[in-house]
Computed example of a mutant assay.
Amino acid sequence: MSVALTSPVAHGPVQQEPLRVMLVDDSVVIRGMISRWLGSEPDIVVAASLRTGLEAVNQIERINPDIAVLDIEMPELDGISALPLLLAKKRNLVVIMASTLTRRNAEISFKALSLGASDYIPKPESTREATAAETFRHDLVQKIRHLGARARRSSHPTAAPSLAPAHDRVRDAALRAPAPVSAPVVKRSFSSQNPKALLIGSSTGGPQALMALVAEIGPVIDRFPVLITQHMPPTFTTILAEHLARASNRPAREAIDGEAVKAGHIYLAPGGRHMRVVRHGIEPVIALDDGPPVNFCKPAVDPLFASAVDVWQGATLALVLTGMGSDGMRGGKDIAAAGGSVIAQDEATSVVWGMPGAAAHAGICAAVLPLNQIAPKLVRLFSGDRS
């Protein structure tokens, strides 16, 4: 058994308490590396470092963490088996699944999201690769910080009405969590042109939001192309495309460089490559590239949004869903400047209101809506109703 405990932090002002993280991984190298990284962050403390899921389940009440970073493959009790047991003991626990980039682990990560995990993070195949390790470190710290802060806001509600409950824990938490008070959002008018394509950008919490959305916008998909950039690594995007196809009952797959963009299809940016749309003769086609990360992301939303202006001009409709950072805001500015429309998911239903919040506060949005109101609005807009 490998356990490193700190004493629970006394309850004081929420914003002053460091986030308590429980690391659960059978690799002593990974636990040591992550512990060093998190230990250097002033607002994060490693509350425990454990080797198996069984240790985590047995000790969670004593450790009382805000966040668990949970490996998938472990002896005694693996991550996917430990997940529901941990959530049963602490319902508001933020769980970030960690796994290597294999198809099996990608499938398990998606299953974990449906079981209540908040997010996932791919572990680098080798911690000796400086770039991969630094990306992993950046992403992990940001996920812990943003998801932990949101969980604390949810557990210290001010006074906010709940929206209609949903079936799974993640959707329920996203729909019901109160949002902090923020500055008023200035909204623009919707484009005077009927939209010809739907572009979507998403990150943290995106897979769950995308699955709910595509299931309700069949009339849009049937008549118009849908292009999606979700911050995800290779293999994971392959699995996400398969899930989107099942959820929408429409063709959905990773985009292929040079293929024509047609109505009735969902095109997903493949992990590790930026997706743009360009005009080839009279028809739009997919253009993939292996350029550097944009906004720390690859694929990134901004390249897709910005490229669409050259193809559809003011007939472009972009949607910014839940996610960390500000990706999509600059590309959204280009769309708005060209006369197109941008919609952002609202704060209360976003797992993290980074990307949609940046778009909303940039003054480029025609609407900022709860997740359950976005699909009906899209169906109306693509039917020519701009009211």
Rank of each mutant, 00 (worst) to 15 (best):
279 R>C: 15
323 G>H: 00
324 M>C: 04
307 S>M: 07
316 T>S: 15
349 T>W: 00
311 V>K: 01
322 T>L: 11
285 V>H: 14
347 E>W: 04
332 G>R: 10
353 W>S: 04
286 I>W: 04
287 A>S: 14
350 S>F: 08
349 T>N: 05
280 H>Q: 15
284 P>G: 10
343 I>H: 05
283 E>L: 03
317 L>E: 12
312 W>P: 06
357 G>S: 09
347 E>H: 13
326 S>M: 11
362 A>Y: 03
309 V>C: 10
278 V>F: 08
300 A>I: 06
348 A>F: 00
301 V>Y: 03
354 G>S: 01
334 D>T: 13
335 I>R: 14
360 A>H: 00
283 E>C: 09
319 L>N: 06
321 L>H: 02
305 F>W: 08
293 P>F: 12
324 M>N: 01
349 T>M: 06
286 I>H: 03
339 G>T: 08
342 V>S: 10
331 G>L: 05
345 Q>R: 12
294 V>C: 09
345 Q>M: 12
306 A>C: 10
347 E>A: 15
363 G>A: 07
354 G>I: 10
327 D>G: 13
287 A>H: 12
303 P>H: 06
312 W>M: 10
320 V>G: 11
338 A>Q: 10
278 V>E: 15
329 M>W: 04
282 I>C: 13
297 C>F: 00
350 S>L: 07
300 A>S: 11
367 A>T: 03
299 P>K: 06
290 D>H: 07
314 G>T: 07
329 M>I: 06
281 G>I: 15
312 W>F: 14
